[in-house]
Nucleic acid binder design. Structure first.
Lengths: 230, 230
DNA sequence: TCAAAAGTGTTCTGTTTACACCCATGG
DNA sequence: CCATGGGTGTAAACAGAACACTTTTGA
């Protein structure tokens, strides 16, 4: 049994809230749920939950994500801790924001909350409870930064994807148009993709080649700490 | 009185720990204290304290810093939240790390802990309690990144400083030698310094010109979100 | 007069940007 | 046969890196 040295100190509730980004092949989306308990019942919210005594925050975020959506083995990263005294109208709660990246198409959703969950275009986020809009803004800024230092695509794209989809993903994240030739040249210089002998025929008559990430080259690049200035 | 909606949830102690960087004109330093209470009494540690019910984390970090060192109006930024179940041998505690930047020479130290505090060269950090070494590593990485996007110097340098000192600061942060001419050219291109009609005579016979930051130009640059690639 | 630090520009190289036409195919 | 999206290279502008000599002056 652990000794309790700090008995006179205040304790607080610690929550985790997850900003879940997804890519559907066209646009960057954010998963939100209609909150089904008080306070602020029936308003749009990030998914969240409380830290338990026997887990750390990374584990809590993964547990919450799995419980509410069925998603597991998802890229999760801690973002920031929000602590204004009255941020949660229910009770003094400090919340640690995490963001998650997933490929919408190839994940199974089967969580208990899924009947009340919805993907929103990141450019059309509704009013959320508490300080959740602030958390989302923070997550988008972080994702933009990440997109320049790590090839985020791995987490957000399906196993096989077209160059167009990769470009659309970066355009969604950075919220600006990119030049097709410069983008392709840049990606090819990076040398982390494997071009498959297979085409996606759904978007054009000519068809466009599918690629996948070369896991080995890719993780070497990440270790070297590459920069991906687009 | 606030209603308590979440009564069945576990509560935890929330600590703040401060990684305090200072610059003495030559080298980047880190302020550590000898812990004067159990557990881990007499080991080197970051300064820290517990969040109180009536304050947010930024306020707690500022309060702790002021109480233990007398320092106020210091640049403080939240870094990361550490939550491993057994990270603190005293009791389950989650800790939010903050880092602070100060100019050693022009701050008054008068805190209760100052008899047990010491500045360490960032390249010679001793073994610290708990996960504090990990926090320091995280802070150094963050400081390196910040140094490329914001002119950190403002916080770490005295009001008047030489170009040499500015360069030494960047060399300490980035832990590499920089080319004097390139550095000077780069800083001049940025156009955020004001050259004074005054020389520092302590380091050479010729003397070297003193500069100060032009607050207006400087904060405009920060707003524009400049990049400071050295 | 000389040792020690301050100050100052140019060239080279690599990276980023801008830009337009042909290709393949299904309908 | 043509409309639609796919695929490709080059030149100009810019930013980063390398590099060495002169100046000042106190001791």
């Amino acid at each position: 049994m652990m000794l309790h040295y700090y008995e006179k100190e205040d304790q607080v509730l610690l929550a985790v809230d997850c900003i879940i980004f997804g890519f559907d092949g066209k646009k960057l989306k954010l998963l939100l749920v209609k909150r089904n308990f008080e306070p602020e019942k029936d308003k749009w919210s990030l998914i969240g939950g409380f830290l338990k005594k026997n887990e750390n925050l990374d584990e809590a975020a993964a547990r919450v994500l799995k419980a509410l959506t069925g998603l597991k083995e998802v890229y999760l990263e801690q973002l920031h801790t929000y602590s204004n005294v009255n941020r949660d109208s229910g009770q003094r709660t400090v919340s640690v924001a995490y963001y998650a990246l997933i490929d919408i198409a190839s994940h199974q959703f089967e969580g208990i909350l899924l009947d009340t969950a919805k993907w929103f275009d990141v450019k059309l986020i509704p009013d959320l409870i508490f300080d959740h809009n602030q958390m989302v803004d923070g997550a988008i800024r972080r994702l933009r930064r990440r997109a320049q230092t790590k090839p985020i695509g791995f987490e957000l794209l399906p196993n096989k994807f077209t160059m167009k989809q990769l470009q659309l993903l970066y355009e969604s994240i950075l919220d600006k148009k990119l030049d097709k030739r410069n983008f392709t040249n840049k990606i090819n210089t990076l040398d982390v993709l494997e071009k498959l002998n297979e085409k996606d025929m759904t978007e054009s008559k000519k068809g466009s080649f599918l690629f996948k990430f070369d896991q080995i080259k890719y993780s070497n690049k990440v270790k070297e700490g590459f920069s991906f200035k687009i």
